[in-house]
Design a protein around this nucleic acid. Structure first.
Lengths: 220, 220
DNA sequence: TAGATTGTTAATCGATTAACAATC
DNA sequence: TAGATTGTTAATCGATTAACAATC
């Protein structure tokens, strides 16, 4: 079939979903300053968006604002977090404890995003037993057992391109249902499994092209 | 103004731009196998897209296919690379030699994407003088002079959130015109400067929401 | 009250998909 | 030649933007 995945995902668009965390970031800053209310215009200005778009996006989380006053900062914050499920922590396992894997393993910010990386796995015997902070690096042999025992659904893939497909297959065999793929290649998974590709090449294509437009005198 | 950036960028849509590298990946594999031609249907199947979309995307690079036969693999490959400017290497400087910065610094794949990270910069004296492969880590003091002397236009930002804005400002002062931002926060730049935000929270929002739909019985 | 801001319905814009003629 | 595949114009779909009534 044609679609990238067949999950229902009804209603909310991906662009909207991707903007919600940006709103959260703004809201958290306002909450720290104890601002009780915020208007969609303020949020829009902060993020270089248009007010109506913010209002439309916030509609889906149904935080509910008050005309004239705006949205209650703490209420809206909670509504978005609830909507994204970031109040309930989800466990994840990471495979590939190279620099990138270690960066993710050590990143404190995931806590606020409802993600808890339980442990990392690698093939390199020199890495096994070490760790980043309180997160341990274990032998890949132990992945399947731990994933099954802890009923973990999220796998983070930070292996070289060549090992990506085999690692993904292992993850699926172990009950993983969503793979966050940082390997610089695409992986193939059966229908119903979620893959979020983090593709540097795609981002660089956008950046390269925009830069071209600036550096080179535009033709015509 | 309302738009994210004011660069002309006429014609080609961002979604199309983001797909072009995926086509390149497929084409490179076919080139290795010495396949002379490929149809848009083959490419689409490989990437779980629809043929007409591939055809539309390829139109913009005007590689030009032959009815019945398909597209010449080497010609199309070159056309896309030319279009993205990936045949001419662009130099970049990276700031923030932590795990993430080191991962990018050591990533061999950028060569194929027309990106050459010349050097990295950091504040930590213990890192200065070390490096990853042949890429050196230098003191941040030297950033401005080197960027100006080498006329480098691309800056890669891999510092902690707290240092992001100040580092971006330094980059702009040094003549950088495009910032690839991996710091987990947004940065503010004047109009005309390109920022490509790599936002993990946005990606995780999409993944979280999709996973919710699978794990929890969908209501109604 | 007056005015700012939300909520909601309608209009626009742009990307995707469909249809089909052209062609190797 | 016949048939597969491109190229191109038109239709559809969905996201963004506009308009305006409701309301604190």
């Amino acid at each position: 079939m044609a679609t990238e995945n067949l999950i229902p995902q009804k209603g909310v668009s991906v662009p909207t979903l991707r903007r919600l965390p940006l709103y959260l970031e703004v809201l958290k800053r306002l909450a720290e300053q104890n601002k009780p209310y915020v208007s969609c215009t303020q949020i829009a200005d902060e993020l270089k968006l248009v007010p109506i778009q913010v209002r439309k996006d916030l509609e889906v989380t149904s935080g509910g604002g008050k005309p004239k006053v705006g949205y209650s900062v703490p209420e809206l914050l909670k509504a978005i977090e609830d909507y994204l499920g970031w109040n309930n922590t989800a466990d994840a396992l990471l495979v590939g404890a190279g620099n990138l894997g270690s960066a993710l393993l050590g990143y404190q910010g995931f806590e606020m995003l409802g993600l808890n990386i339980v442990a990392a796995f690698d093939l390199d015997p020199r890495k096994i037993g070490t760790g980043v902070g309180d997160k341990k690096i274990m032998s890949l042999d132990r992945f399947e057992a731990l994933a099954k025992r802890m009923k973990i659904h999220i796998g983070i893939l930070t292996v070289p391109a060549g090992a990506a497909q085999a690692t993904a297959d292992l993850m699926l065999k172990s009950g993983i249902q969503a793979i966050w793929n940082f390997a610089p290649t695409r992986i193939k998974v059966p229908d119903g499994i979620i893959v979020q590709h983090e593709n540097l090449a795609s981002s660089l294509a956008v950046l390269s092209k925009k830069l071209q437009a600036v550096l080179r005198p535009k033709k015509k």
